[in-house]
Amino acid sequence: MRISEVIRRKGAEVVTIRPEVTVTDLLTLLAERNIGAVVVSTDEGRTIAGIVTERDVVRHLNSDGAQVLDGPVAALMTTEVLTCSVEDDLQTLARTMTDKRIRHLPVVEDGELLAIVSIGDIVKNRIDELQAENEQLVDYVHG
């Protein structure tokens, strides 16, 4: 199965934030949207300048203290962002995300940000596939 199928099921909405926004405002956004990562973009979400996650905030709070909260998102974000395309295979991406300990992957097509997928999206998709296979096997055995 391809990433395009996950996007079709979950939707392509991507929450973005500008790099100059404060970390406190980032935390508000994460809480309001009940998400764990935000793509950082300087052009209204068309391209990726970076990505910032809850983990980034926690790590910087631990190392730099509470003053991090008043600083810009740009100070915390990861600028070398691993991305995927709509044609990428879910199994391959699941392995990559697990190996690299990445929970969120922006989906890029023709150089533009299209969507974002999380490891949770991929796991949910796999559970749905297994459940459908199970139902087919039960029907076959009882049929």
Rank of each mutant, 00 (worst) to 15 (best):
T83G: 09
T92N: 12
S118G: 04
Q91S: 13
I122M: 11
D43M: 09
G65E: 11
P106S: 05
L82P: 01
I122A: 11
I102S: 01
G120W: 12
I48P: 00
M77A: 10
V81I: 07
R126M: 14
M77I: 04
V39A: 01
V107P: 09
L130C: 09
S85H: 13
V73N: 05
E80R: 15
E80I: 03
R55E: 12
T47S: 02
R59Y: 11
P72W: 00
D70I: 08
A94T: 13
G65S: 12
E54V: 12
G45W: 07
T42L: 07
C84T: 15
V39D: 01
V39K: 00
D99Y: 06
M77D: 00
D89V: 09
L93W: 00
I122D: 01
M77G: 05
L130I: 06
L69K: 10
E129D: 15
D88R: 02
H104F: 06
V68N: 02
G111P: 01
V107A: 07
L113S: 05
S85I: 08
T53E: 04
D56M: 11
T92W: 04
D43I: 10
S63Q: 13
R103H: 14
G111R: 07
D121L: 08
P106I: 04
T79V: 13
D56F: 09
V86H: 03
I48W: 01
V52F: 02
R103I: 10
L82E: 01
E112W: 03
A66I: 15
D43E: 11
I127P: 00
G45C: 12
R95S: 13
E129W: 11
P106A: 11
R95A: 15
I116Y: 09
I127A: 13
R59L: 12
D89N: 15
L69S: 11
G120T: 13
P106K: 00
A94N: 11
L130D: 08
D128E: 15
I127T: 13
I119F: 13
T79W: 08
E129P: 01
K100I: 05
V40P: 09
V58K: 04
R59C: 05
L105E: 00
T96E: 13
E44D: 03
K100H: 05
D128H: 11
S118E: 09
D64M: 13
A66W: 12
I122F: 08
D128N: 04
D43A: 10
A49H: 05
I119C: 08
R95L: 14
E112F: 05
V107H: 03
L69A: 10
V38G: 03
L130T: 09
V58Y: 12
A66E: 15
S118Q: 03
Q67F: 06
V73Q: 01
I127Y: 13
A37C: 10
N62Q: 12
L105Q: 01
I119P: 01
I122E: 06
V107W: 11
M77C: 09
T79M: 08
